[in-house]
């Protein structure tokens, strides 16, 4: 195996293009574990942490652009970002331990392709957009459009994510992410939900995005669950309809982390609880 430090994204793309066996190394919290446990043996690891701009959080169009190698810990230490998208930052900060937080990145979490990735439902709810560099240049793609299946994304050969853009938000808006795990920390999500809401001056929800994790082959956006919230003040009926829509959207597996039945039930619980938090953050009053 070779270890190469890429100077810029063009070099990283070129290296990725040299063969099938190259992998990017950002926080390493997935690829190094896979190398240890799953027999993954790349020919080359391309370290992208020293590329200019990859490790910075920058304000842009009243939103924030998060470099691909920005760690969870770094996002958590950015007050303005936390104020704008608290749910996204919370979601990223739930990935692994404090130690993992020191390395793990939002872009890596996305590229790993896990349906249980904590940051992904929150990013979808936030309508985040990935900036992709590849042999054919740069393109911007909404996160939801990148998800393909367990361990897979719609990134083309030799493409890499250079940053993720979290857009500006309306004045009365809030987001939240919740997951269920058997312990209080250190587990992979068994069911999770990211919710982002906007409310009007009367606390009525005007816009909503609901995304669920760990209940289908990919993280899924559930427009029916969002629709159940729009036009309401999150009354009991709205929350119940939201939960019902979530349950209907679930297509989970039975595995060592939870039964399909459990995931289906709990996904709705996470979504309604997250919706309530997002609503409160948006300034909504029932």
């Amino acid at each position: 195996m070779r270890y190469v430090v890429a100077k810029d994204s063009r070099e990283a793309v070129a290296l990725l293009n040299t063969g099938e066996g190259a992998r990017l190394l950002s926080g390493g919290t997935d690829v190094l574990v896979q190398m240890k446990l799953s027999g993954v043996a790349p020919d080359m690891l391309i370290d992208i942490k020293r590329i200019d701009g990859f490790n910075t959080i920058s304000a842009e169009d009243s939103g924030f652009r998060i470099g691909a190698t920005v760690s969870g810990a770094k996002m958590g230490a950015h007050p303005a970002l936390k104020t704008l998208w608290p749910g996204v930052v919370e979601a990223v900060e739930l990935i692994g331990s404090t130690q993992v937080q020191g390395r793990a990145t939002m872009a890596g979490n996305l590229c790993n392709g896990s349906p249980a990735a904590d940051s992904v439902p929150a990013m979808i709810a936030a309508e985040a957009v990935a900036r992709i560099e590849g042999p054919d240049g740069t393109r911007d793609v909404p996160i939801a459009a990148l998800l393909k299946g367990p361990g897979k994304t719609h990134l083309a050969k030799a493409e890499l994510i250079s940053s993720i853009f979290l857009p500006a938000r309306a004045a009365r808006a809030g987001d939240a992410y919740l997951r269920f795990i058997p312990r209080t920390e250190m587990d992979i999500a068994v069911a999770s939900a990211g919710v982002s809401l906007e409310v009007d001056e009367n606390s009525v929800v005007t816009k909503a995005v609901v995304a669920l994790g760990a209940v289908a082959p990919t993280v899924v956006s559930v427009p029916e669950a969002a629709a159940a919230l729009i036009g309401t003040k999150l009354d009991a009926a709205a929350l119940e309809a939201c939960a019902k829509a979530c349950t209907a959207a679930c297509n989970p597996i039975d595995d060592k982390r939870g039964t399909a039945e459990f995931r289906t039930k709990v996904a709705g619980v996470m979504a309604t609880r997250a919706a309530k938090i997002a609503y409160a953050r948006a300034g909504g009053q029932q």
């Binding site: 446990l37 312990r183 209080t184 920390e185 250190m186 587990d187 992979i188 060592k256 982390r257």
Partner: peptide
């Protein structure tokens, strides 16, 4: 064995 590691063999952690 499906959970041969501390990730899925869940011993109590400090926050539990």
């Amino acid at each position: 064995l499906q959970n041969a590691g501390f990730l899925d063999y869940r011993i109590p952690v400090a926050s539990d």
